[in-house]
Amino acid sequence: MFADLFSDFYQFADVFAFLILSAAGLAIIFGMMGVINLAHGEFIMCGVYVTSAVYHAGLPLPLAQACGAIVAGLIGMLLEVTIIRPLYSRPLDSLLVTWGISLVATQGTLIALGSTFPGIDTPGHSFSVGEYSFSSYRMVLFAASLCVLGFVYVLFMRTRFGVHARATMQNPGMAQALGVRKGFIYALSFGIGTGLAGLCGALYAPTMNLIPTMGASFLVEAFVTVVVGGANVLLGTGPAAIALGAIRAGLNAWYGQVVGEIGLLIAVVLIIRVLPDGFSGWLTRRTS
């Protein structure tokens, strides 16, 4: 009985972690900054590849993972300054440009590094509850997803940078007039977004098959979570992941992965039909 209950919790935590970690970076870039970043999956892939390369060069895994996140963040900042910045008022063009970046990144990786990349051992052991055995690394992923949620909340709600960033996203002209360095804020926010994408890749690197197109397997879940979360990502992403995670994990358990995937997408359609502003819009209306 307890084993089954724990198993249900584990499955939910697993899906929740996947949704939060894939969506966190996009929540900032798409949810806050309004850039429909179709290269999100490739920043995740970047995190995976850097982590694996650094790990195979001899660094311990946590350090390698930090490198993965940092490199993805730096590349993101560089791209923001050079390519994305002129396109903030042109969302369709930025969509096209980021799609182009994603194509260049996957094909470039294929040409430069080949069709596969050596994988990493999953760290940690397994533990048993009743008749089931579980991977303890999956619990690390769940903890990491909670940390990421906490980090994003504290960063944007409790720091000077966060106030400046939110002010800039709301009214860039006014923020600049008050002495906020607009360009710096944009570059840093974008970099934090891609860095979180890189972190997602870094964390999932030891559990997956590494190929250049692997970013795509995160993309749908990332967008779906952010859209259901709504405009205020700090408020919406968490509840969105809880709701979608519960739906997906439940359907997976009862009817299998095919129904799980279909059910997730149907749930998204229904949620945005009933709550057009997503969870955050609904929560804001309830509280104000």
């Binding site: 899906v15 992965q257 095919v258």
Partner: peptide, 12 residues
């Protein structure tokens, strides 16, 4: 169990 192509998470 049939798995949709592209699914990468197998805990369930």
């Amino acid at each position: 169990e049939f798995i949709p192509l592209g699914v990468s998470q197998f805990a369930q």
